[in-house]
């Protein structure tokens, strides 16, 4: 296959900067020198490819993938949507991984010491590949909010963390999804590290009644947009003239 066009530059005015000092952990972990701007080479335009045979049959069902003696506690939900690029083209066969707290706001992680209990039937992680239309779905329990030591009284909105690949290593992304109506979203310093309110709203997912399974499971729709790529004939040639 011939290389396709180069990727549009990352929109550094949309993404959070390295230092958003209200998120205190940034202060010692943010670079101070300017980033070196690099045009695409094969190193940035390629990336790992994953296959269905690498995933297990329950990897996209967080209600069942760690259940020991029953279903986990909480509100049953489906999360679904498409992975697209900035041109609106679907990103097919790409790996999505997701992790979250349980319904009480507790992660199954040794560093999480919050008072809310671990749910013996809930792991809180899963993964799936998008289909040829860029579509994905998984089933889980709605996560709960949880406190953290940033400001004295600081709660994270209920969230689900996403890791997304895309075909190029330059598209590698971690994002978080928040739920419509959560009053904690706009007071969270991690959310507000994003300087662009429209970009924050794009992380807040609506209830999707059409995808709800009646008498069983509600649904939320989260579309994810990765960097697009050029398709005109007049671009720089990677290989020279």
């Amino acid at each position: 296959m011939e290389p396709k066009g180069e990727y549009y530059q990352l929109d550094r005015l949309l993404h959070p900067p390295a230092l958003a000092p209200n998120y205190k952990t940034d202060v010692t972990r943010s670079y101070k020198y300017a980033l070196l701007s690099l045009q695409n080479s094969l190193s940035e335009m390629t990336g790992p490819v994953f296959g269905h045979n690498e995933l297990g049959p329950l990897d996209n069902d967080l209600i069942r993938n760690y259940a020991k003696d029953g279903d986990p506690i909480g509100q049953r939900i489906i999360v679904h949507g498409r992975v697209l690029d900035e041109n609106g083209r679907p990103v097919p066969n790409t790996l999505l991984e997701f992790w979250q707290a349980n319904a009480g706001g507790r992660y199954r992680h040794e560093k999480d010491t919050y008072l809310a209990p671990i749910d013996p039937n809930f792991g809180g992680c899963g993964r799936t590949l998008t289909n040829e239309d860029g579509y994905y779905f998984f089933r889980t329990i709605k996560s709960g909010s949880y406190p953290r030591r940033n400001f004295v009284n600081n709660w994270r909105p209920a969230d689900i963390h996403f890791s997304i690949f895309g075909p190029a290593f330059a598209q590698r992304l971690i994002a978080q999804m928040y739920f419509e109506g959560d009053p904690l979203i706009w007071s969270c310093p991690i959310v507000r590290a994003i300087p662009d309110d429209e970009a924050i709203r794009a992380l807040i997912v609506p209830l999707d009644m059409n995808a709800t399974v009646p008498l069983d499971c509600r649904a939320y729709k989260f579309d994810i947009v990765l960097r697009g790529r050029r398709s005109t004939m007049f671009e720089n040639r990677l290989e020279g003239n």
Binding site: D11, Y107, R108, K111, G123, H161, I174, A175, I200, A202
Partner: peptide, 25 residues
Amino acid sequence: YLRETASQTAGLYVHIGLIPKQVGF
């Protein structure tokens, strides 16, 4: 054009999502 989905931190609990064995999971 669509706009990129904004990046967020991987957070303290990234292990359970991406490398669960490290937390004995």
